[in-house]
């Protein structure tokens, strides 16, 4: 790629293209959400510095019979394993599990 093809002045014209950098490989520990315990309070989603916790419209039926209309899922492509979600969860639904190769 030559100087002719770059946008001038170092501009980046594709918004949000940092999704090409999969920072998930930074992790040592990965957060795992226990969907049975999770109350869908959205605090983990709110605090995540990378915005990798997604609200997915997948209904979930807990073992006690409670039905939730949505679920929270973590995008492990980008999660850096900082542990803020696990720390902030008020019901301790998230545990940090060591990444084992």
């Amino acid at each position: 790629m030559s100087w002719r093809e770059l946008p001038i002045g170092g501009m980046v014209v594709e918004p949000g293209n940092s999704i090409a950098r999969r920072t998930g490989d930074w992790r040592v520990f990965r957060p795992v959400i226990n969907q049975d315990v999770c109350t869908r309070c959205l605090i983990c989603w709110m605090y995540c510095p990378d915005g990798v916790i997604k609200l997915v419209d997948t209904p979930y039926r807990t073992s006690k019979g409670r039905v939730w209309s949505f679920t929270l899922e973590i995008d492990y492509d980008y999660c850096k394993g900082c542990g803020i979600c696990a720390e902030e969860c008020p019901v301790d639904a998230i545990s940090m599990v060591e990444e084992v190769k």
């Binding site: 030559s2 770059l6 001038i8 002045g9 170092g10 501009m11 980046v12």
Partner: peptide, 24 residues
């Protein structure tokens, strides 16, 4: 049409961007 102006450019691409100025 969001663009990012004034990004951080490393040794990989800075020279090419400056060369654009030479040509201009």
């Amino acid at each position: 049409k969001p663009v990012t102006m004034g990004s951080l450019v490393g040794p990989d691409w800075y020279y090419e961007i400056k060369y654009q100025q030479v040509e201009a």
